[in-house]
């Protein structure tokens, strides 16, 4: 009841990437790719731990990743990994106060310096690199 009246947007609002421009989309993708990589890491640890159950169990698990579905998952993981790294570097540098512009007299129509073209370019480059890496990964995995 109290939360209802506080009118917080909650996770639904936090996870909504629309309305506020490309930086909010990058924020959303960074979170999504981070959660995806965490899930992959847990799955990967589970996958490699099957070796403790002998060669048959390991081969059985490995065969799962060598299906088209397994390859698609790996291609998505490659994309998440590249985007998360590229965008993560941008965020780390920005959070140190670099590349966010300099304070000055705001002029109408008040475009925020922190949402500058360098930031937007870095986001698009991260997306493009992720797409290229995914294409290369798909070529290698499905090419054989």
């Amino acid at each position: 009841m109290a939360e209802r009246l506080s009118n917080r947007e909650g996770i639904k609002g936090m996870a909504n990437p629309t309305r506020y421009g490309i930086l909010r989309v990058a924020y959303w993708l960074q979170r999504l790719s981070g959660l995806g990589l965490l899930a992959y890491l847990i799955g990967h640890i589970y996958e490699t731990s099957t070796i403790l159950n002998g060669k048959a169990a390991w081969d059985n698990m490995l065969s799962l990743t060598e299906t088209p579905g397994g390859h698609i998952v790996l291609v998505i993981v490659i994309g998440m990994c590249v985007f998360h790294t590229g965008n993560g570097i941008r965020v780390m540098i920005s959070e140190g106060g670099k590349g966010v512009g300099k304070p000055g007299q705001p002029e109408y129509p008040y475009r925020a310096s922190s949402l500058n073209s360098k930031q937007r370019l870095c986001i698009w480059v991260s997306i493009a690199l992720a797409a290229l890496a995914m294409m290369y990964g798909a070529g290698v995995l499905f090419g054989n």
């Binding site: 421009g21 990058a26 949402l115």
Partner: peptide
Amino acid sequence: FAGSCSNVCPKGVDPAM
């Protein structure tokens, strides 16, 4: 650094910066 605060600021304060 989602930048949404600066996106909506009507006075050019740029809180994200």
